[in-house]
Design a binder for these strands. Structure first.
Lengths: 154, 154
DNA sequence: AAGAATTACCCACGATTACCCACAATATAT
DNA sequence: ATATATTGTGGGTAATCGTGGGTAATTCTT
């Protein structure tokens, strides 16, 4: 039984098989609220990784997009960029989803995947890429990072 | 019956068994408020130890994380670093939780664990590491330490 | 419309985990 | 002091999980 619906934490290593399938960690599947109907929406992350949203969370994003007027070209561009790479995926009886080769390329994923719970979504990383990005980001702005710790960690 | 809900004090020595299980001191279990449902959240401490939060306290941290915009890369990095090593654990009928080998490695824990009440959370230490860190920290900044004593101790 | 390629769904199996019971040692109550 | 309950520690077993592959259905191509 899930304690905290649609909330994801923890880090897991899984393998991507020849068909592009990866397991969604069992704990995450249990955290997924039933109204999601075993479905996530996968898309490009803002970092070089794959973002995996519970369906209902993604629908909330879609609702926001619908509010945007299509008259403004910036709006159209934004809607395009957001919608373009997203697709819903239902995990199979073994708990796996299929990743398209486009997304795999984008995240530089090959055989090994690092799956990280990001509270309201999930990220799928190549270990190398993650290390690179993390180093870059934390070095660039360590004072902002400390400030956040101060404000949030109990 | 617990006198003071979700407040932990005292120091206890326990053994970690072959399956990575450690006992949560009975006193701490009794201090855990019922709405936690016998569940803690374990994660990396800021020191080389394991932090153990009552579930409800951790959920407060999660709520804070949810407020952060995912547009800023520092924010994403911070959420990642915070969520990544955290996992909820329910203690078993004997009062034990399971520690992952990742966390055991991080805290340099082997067979013997020192469990310390830290008021609103619990820490699990290797005795050697604790001594080392304590020596380091208090030597480095003894005046700040005295100032705190002055302000807080009655 | 037929063949080729892709996708969806099913089964299998070793490894891991969750859950149960056991028991000695300590603490509490009578 | 003796009996009773609780606590800390160890181990066993059944269920679950992660991963590989196979076959039928669907889609695409020509």
């Amino acid at each position: 039984m899930a304690i905290n619906q649609d909330t994801f934490t923890g880090e897991y290593s899984y393998t991507i098989d020849a068909k592009g399938r990866v397991n969604i960690p069992a704990k995450f599947r249990q955290s997924l609220a039933p109204e999601n109907n075993n479905t996530f929406v996968i898309t490009r992350g803002m970092d070089p990784c794959i973002w995996v949203y519970p369906l209902t969370v993604w629908q909330f994003i879609e609702d926001n997009l619908k509010e945007l007027s299509a008259v403004s070209s910036i709006n159209r561009s934004f809607i395009r960029a957001t919608a373009r790479y997203a697709s819903p995926v239902k995990y199979d009886k073994q708990g796996r989803i299929i990743l398209s080769s486009q997304l795999l390329d984008y995240a530089k994923l090959d055989k090994d995947a690092l799956i990280i719970g990001m509270i309201n979504k999930i990220e799928i990383w190549s270990a190398d890429e993650l290390e690179k990005i993390e180093k870059q980001t934390t070095e660039m702005d360590s004072s902002a990072y400390d400030e956040l710790s101060d404000k949030i960690i109990l």
